[in-house]
Write a protein that binds this DNA or RNA. Structure first.
Lengths: 174, 174
DNA sequence: GTGCGCATGTAAGAGGTTACATGATTAA
DNA sequence: TTAATCATGTAACCTCTTACATGCGCAC
């Protein structure tokens, strides 16, 4: 399997593994989670659902309604579950690591406890790496006087510290 | 001017407003800032630079070198500065608010103090909104038992709290 | 002698957003 | 009557990533 950039394909598949939903349901379910990473618009949600159906990874139940358009409830299939399991083993190496991580976090209910721990530890290692990098940069250009850069580094370090803290607390709790 | 999704165009323009750089320089400059939002690859960096040049927003200085390929140092032009000023007034309404915010943060050296404060306050308001939304969702489904969703909300709230804290401290400091 | 840092660039393809189309119901 | 929620979908467009091409110098 290829590394594959941040796609909604497997993310949506994972959501359907938690419980059968329609496209509209998924959209609602994701409200409030999008502030960090942004969430798919209908223009990518519906086509993604169609693709999953065409590939046999999900099945559709059409629930007709008298007045409104028929709801289409998607459920994950056995092949879908296999694909999802394979995907969950892949390291999250994408261009926007935060996005990949948050997606896996949301899906963690479908993964084994061990798998979740691996993801959290991988993320911890990644963040720690970047903290080291940022501290190094901050030290290097103490008087380089690029004010925005300094502000951004400060912001990044603050968020990273909070994230490491959360990761440690969460790892301890499991 | 249209709202315009997250593009590197104005971001790169803003970086060149801080100091003249080559594409390779920009890439180096951005190392370490990418962990949150991801940073442009050469495949988008160089074409963006060419487009800015074609539109007369930047000028190029070719610095030949005996062995290595000639470096091309880009500098912002007056028209570029105008465009950048106009862009900085726009509210950051894109699909990935974090990305838009971090970009403006990095560029804050090119903005007026007042402008920076506006950006920080807008961000504060946004994050506070989402915190309210997340708390509401967390309260609603206390026993809904969607474990991943709960974990993601917890994560989101932790990061949001840290960000609000940073924003308040930074706003107070200016 | 293999890989990395320097330094620029192009082309194909993937993937997403925006805007549109449809249409009933309900609240301000 | 104007707007929002419910509910699905398509198509044009835009942008970015990936992979490639080139080529020197230096370190292991």
């Amino acid at each position: 399997m290829k590394p594959e950039g941040v796609t909604y394909r497997h993310f949506i598949l994972g959501l359907l593994a938690q419980k059968p939903m329609s496209g509209y349901d998924i959209n609602r379910y994701l409200k409030g989670l999008g502030w960090l990473i942004g969430m798919p618009s209908f223009g990518s949600l519906y086509p993604a659902l169609h693709a999953l159906r065409d590939d046999g990874l999900v099945t559709v139940d059409i629930v007709p309604s008298c007045d409104k358009p028929a709801r289409k409830i998607y459920s994950i299939s056995d092949r879908g579950r296999q694909e999802l399991a394979a995907w969950s083993e892949l390291p999250a190496l994408s261009g926007t690591p935060l996005k990949a991580f948050v997606m896996r976090l949301i899906l963690s209910g479908s993964f084994s406890r061990a798998q979740v721990l691996v993801h959290l530890e991988q993320r911890r290692a990644r963040v720690a790496e970047h903290v080291a990098l940022m501290e190094q940069m901050a030290a290097q250009q103490r008087e380089a006087a690029e004010p925005g850069h300094g502000l951004a580094l400060d912001y990044g370090l603050a968020l990273a510290a909070a994230e490491l803290d959360w990761l440690d607390r969460t790892l301890a709790r499991l």
